[in-house]
Design a protein around this nucleic acid. Structure first.
Lengths: 240, 240
DNA sequence: TTTACAAAAAATATCGATAATTTTCTTGCA
DNA sequence: TGCAAGAAAATTATCGATATTTTTTGTAAA
């Protein structure tokens, strides 16, 4: 008994319950509603998400492949852990793949490619320079800008892996966004735009590497502060 | 009602029906038992593999994430297509990632790493120099050798993507293996071993690039011949 | 107090039935 | 002959029930 919803984003214009559960679970993991290493019990999720066991298991299987969930036969599913080492790994890989994709795009991109960079940068700039920083809107426009930068990369596999890493990093990125550490994001994006439009591969690769590294440094700093806060909490409990 | 089988390879020593279906389906796709773009009907697979709809759907979802299957809501699953463009893409990506993994391993590898290269090369050499070329055994030992070469690469994500591409290429590799095009595979592997043991990053990267490119060229040649054969068949039918 | 074992409770993975969706076939009309 | 509409057949996706496995709890012995 299929239950579907019409959706503009899927090719057939419909979305199964599996798709729905997948997207909702993924969002909840990225935004920290579901904690690292938290046990994902089917019966609980069933009540929480209003979807039966079979579509839930399918969605969790997909999330396992994406790296958001870990699975163990007969013992069910857990939210995947987060760590400094994982963040460092994702960062390194993102740099490797995004530099590759960006270089290819600079080589192959045409006027339409350039115009999309200009357009997405314009929209991103608007949010970055507004008084109220709408984080959700910023995330959407940031994604669009980065996608535009690599849009002329024709490697299906590179795009797939890049997408996985971008999403994985989103989980950590949400942490960095909630901090007030000073950073001129806008200038970093502007340098990327300029280098790409100038068709300067080396400059663009340097800029993307620094951009990604800066995000990672800030996130790491925040992670460490939170770890220190959590240890202070533990000390207080032990002392009382 | 879980049905499981004790298996030495999984962490918990057991394997679900989903795991079983996944591995069997994957093998059948790689070995061409299931053809590119072939429709995968659940009821047929149910009879063929002796597994119910739910675990089958889970296995197919996982295979979709691996790139062996394509899925479309309400329209089911199909074996993923193969193409020259896909082979070229996989080849480029493999070169990028394997060079990276190999370089890291050369930097970080210790004596144990070297000894595993020596050991796996020895076993591979045995098969490559025997009169009877056992393709299945060769594939296992080839995989072990390549894994040993990159064993000191600590990037979890790089290993994951590399594994996906290695498996994807296996599907094309099976085609190249069935041909008699002359090639000194043994010498290529020997050069890799020597460069790695000499800790010569540049030489090793050159060797791996040539090795992977050579495989792709042969596979492409075979693919084109098969395409020509298939067109001759069509011509014959039209003439009669 | 710790360890081992058994029983109970909870959770997991799968099955077959079934509602919903898609595809195929048939019929009628221009 | 080709196209459109409707009906029939086939397929898909999901549900709730249930056998199996894992975890938790309770008890006894050292």
């Amino acid at each position: 008994m299929p239950r579907t919803y019409k959706d503009q984003n899927s090719p057939s214009g419909s979305r199964t319950l599996t798709d729905q559960a997948y997207l909702q679970l993924r969002s909840d993991i990225i935004h920290g509603e579901l904690q690292p290493e938290e046990k994902l019990r089917i019966e609980h999720l069933r009540e929480e998400y209003g979807v039966g066991a079979s579509p839930l298991r399918e969605a969790l299987s997909r999330l396992t492949a994406d790296g958001f969930v870990t699975a163990e036969g007969q013992r069910g599913f857990r939210v995947a852990p987060m760590s400094e080492a994982d963040l460092a790994d994702i960062t390194r890989m993102r740099i490797l793949l995004e530099k590759q994709a960006l270089s290819q795009s600079i080589e192959h991109g045409d006027d339409a490619w350039e115009s999309q960079i200009v357009a997405t940068f314009y929209q991103l700039e608007k949010v970055e320079q507004s008084e109220e920083r709408d984080k959700t809107e910023w995330e959407i426009r940031n994604h669009d800008f980065h996608e535009a930068l690599i849009a002329a990369c024709t490697s299906k596999w590179l795009r797939r892996f890049y997408g996985i890493l971008y999403d994985q990093h989103k989980r950590y990125r949400n942490i960095a966004l909630s901090t007030e550490i000073p950073r001129d994001l806008h200038q970093e994006h502007e340098e990327l735009r300029n280098a790409a439009l100038a068709r300067d591969k080396q400059r663009a690769c340097d800029a993307i590497e620094q951009h990604i590294m800066r995000t990672a440094e800030i996130t790491l700093k925040v992670l460490r502060e939170e770890e220190a806060d959590r240890e202070n909490e533990v000390d207080k409990v032990a002392a009382s």
